Every structure is written in structure tokens, then in C-alpha cells.
Computed example of a mutant assay.
Amino acid sequence: MAECFGPFAFLWQVVPEQGGNHMLLDVALPLSLAFIMFSLGYGLTFADFGRVFAMPKAALSGIVLQVCVVPAVAYGLLQLVNLPPALAFGVMILAFCPGGVTSNILTKLSGGNVALSITLTAVVSLMSVATVPVLVGWASDAFLGAAAPDLNVTAIAFSMFAITAIPVLIGLLARFLAGSIADQTEPTVTRVALILFVVIVVAALATNWQLFLENVALLGPLLMAINAILLVLGVVISRVIGLSGADGLCISVEMGVQNAALGITVAGLVAQVGGIPEFAVPAAVYGITMYIVTIPGMFLLRRIFGRA
């Protein structure tokens, strides 16, 4: 049976077959996401949230673009392709997620406003506890119809609060109470979080490998197109409304880099079954393709639009 997982066959011993014993994944996935979110909070200070008031135009623009425009772009492109409903729903779950924890690093590499990036990642991540469950409930009906699972939006919100908001707050408090220790250990915490992110993405693909193979020719280009459009829109809209080039590059990266680990986890909360469901495949694929598109894209956008 391991051969059906292709290059991910080495995971056969740790990723159970669908319909089998999913205890490991059911425990490891939320714990891994919780640690990833803790790493986000561990790199924050309370001042990062205060920047919403210090730079209100840039911060509010970034929040609106992330929460409203990203799902709108995904929804629009989904009308142009014929994806299976479960995968289309998975694309929307991904689009509802906040920026990824690596967006701050990519913003720095692109020459964007790192302080704004940190603020947007923090604020939108906490907002997602309220926005994601409601939007997922709508998308479930819109894309799955009669096949939609019976969702308890409140239960999903509480679960997200437990595995996203609380770890962020714990990380934030840890840095506040032991700043010197946090400065020394943050690089290690970040590396562990990145390793866990890779494991989550690979496990999601391995668990749904056949579905991935059957749809990669359509799903891959669609996700890369969404990514590219978001990167361009972030810079263009920022320029139109009068933000600086550095702010625009930051918002562009925040829109293009999604928290794929959260998307995979939310897919599991929605499916209400053990293991990683097919809804998680788009987030897993995007966890790979977003770097293929974003890294060269952000340097190209910087070259075109500059940082002025």
C-alpha cells in the first residue's frame, strides 16, 4: 500500500490510511499548529498591535484586503475552472486564512515594511477566530450544497480559539515576561515551527496523494494564478490609495502568503472525521507553490514599483 503515496512513502508508518486509526494525526496536527501559532506570538510585542493606531491607513487597508479581497479573488477564479466541489471548497478555506508565519521574513527580504507585516499577521490571525468559521459556513453551502457537512460554527470558532489565539497570547506573554530569554530562543522556536509546517503539508499530501495526482494539473495552476494576482493587487491597490512602496510590498506578501497549516487544520475541523480530509489538499499544495510564486514575484514587483 505504501507505493500509492509516491515520494511520500516514507510517511506510511506515521500517516494512517484514510478510514483507519487516525489518532496520531488527530493529536499531532492541532498540537503542531498550536506550536506554530505560539512561535508567531513569541516574536510579537504588545506594541505590534498598537501600530494599527500608529499607521491606521496602511494597517486597515491591509486588514481589509486580506479578509475581503483574498477570498473574492479565489471565488472569482473558481468560477472559471471545473474543480471537484471538495477541492473548490478547500481553496476557499485556504483563502479565508490569515497570512502565514513566514510572511514577515519574506517581507523583509522584499524590502517591505516589516513592522506593518508583523502587525497584519498578528491582528488578522486573531481576527480569523471570528471570520474563518462564519465564512467557512457560507462556503460549505455554496460549494458542497446537499453534500455539505452539518457544521457547528460556534464549535469551530472555539476550536480555532484554542489552537490559534491562545498559543499566540501565550507566546506574547512569554516574550513580555522573559524578553531576554525569548531573544535567545526565538530562532530555535522559529526553526521548529517551520519544520512542523513542512511536516503538516507533506502529511496532508501523503494522506490524499491519489486525489492530488488526479487534480494537480488543474489545481496547481489555479493556486499559482491566485497567488500571482494577489501579489500584484496588493502593490497596485496600495499605490492607488497612496501608500508607500514599502507598505505595498508588505501588503502584497501578506495577501499572497497564506497560513496553509491553519487551512489544513480547519479542513479537518470541518470534515469532522479522523485524519486529514480532501478539503485540505489545496492548502497543502499552496504551502509549496506560494513560495515558488511569491519569492521571484516580490523581487519583480519591487523592481517595477520600487519602495518609494
Rank of each mutant, 00 (worst) to 15 (best):
S238I: 07
A267D: 06
E278F: 14
L249S: 06
V273R: 15
V199M: 12
Q272T: 11
F299N: 03
A206W: 05
N208H: 13
A261T: 13
I276V: 15
G248Y: 00
V235F: 06
Q272V: 11
V235R: 06
L233S: 09
A260N: 10
A206Y: 02
I195P: 03
F299D: 01
F279C: 07
A280S: 12
A280T: 10
I237Y: 02
F279S: 02
V266H: 04
R239M: 10
G297N: 11
P221E: 01
N227Y: 01
A203D: 13
V199C: 11
M224N: 01
V293G: 08
T265Y: 13
L233A: 12
V201C: 12
A284R: 00
A225I: 09
L218Y: 09
M290S: 06
D247N: 11
M298F: 01
G234T: 00
V273A: 14
S252Y: 08
T294V: 10
G242P: 03
G234H: 01
P277I: 11
I229N: 02
A225K: 02
I229F: 05
V201D: 10
G268T: 09
E254A: 03
A225W: 07
M224F: 01
W209R: 05
S244L: 06
D247E: 15
R239Q: 12
N215L: 12
V270Q: 03
A283I: 07
I195V: 15
I226E: 00
L205P: 10
G242E: 08
T265D: 08
I241D: 09
M255P: 05
I200Q: 03
M224L: 09
Q272L: 11
L262K: 04
F197N: 13
A267K: 00
A271D: 04
I226L: 02
A204P: 00
G248H: 04
T294I: 01
S238W: 03
V232Y: 08
I241N: 05
F279T: 02
L219D: 00
V273N: 13
E214H: 10
A261Q: 09
G275H: 09
L300S: 14
V236C: 00
A271M: 05
R239H: 13
F197A: 12
G287R: 06
F299Y: 13
R239T: 11
G256K: 04
V293F: 04
I251Y: 08
G297D: 10
T207S: 13
L213H: 10
V293R: 05
A271I: 08
V232L: 15
V257H: 01
A203M: 14
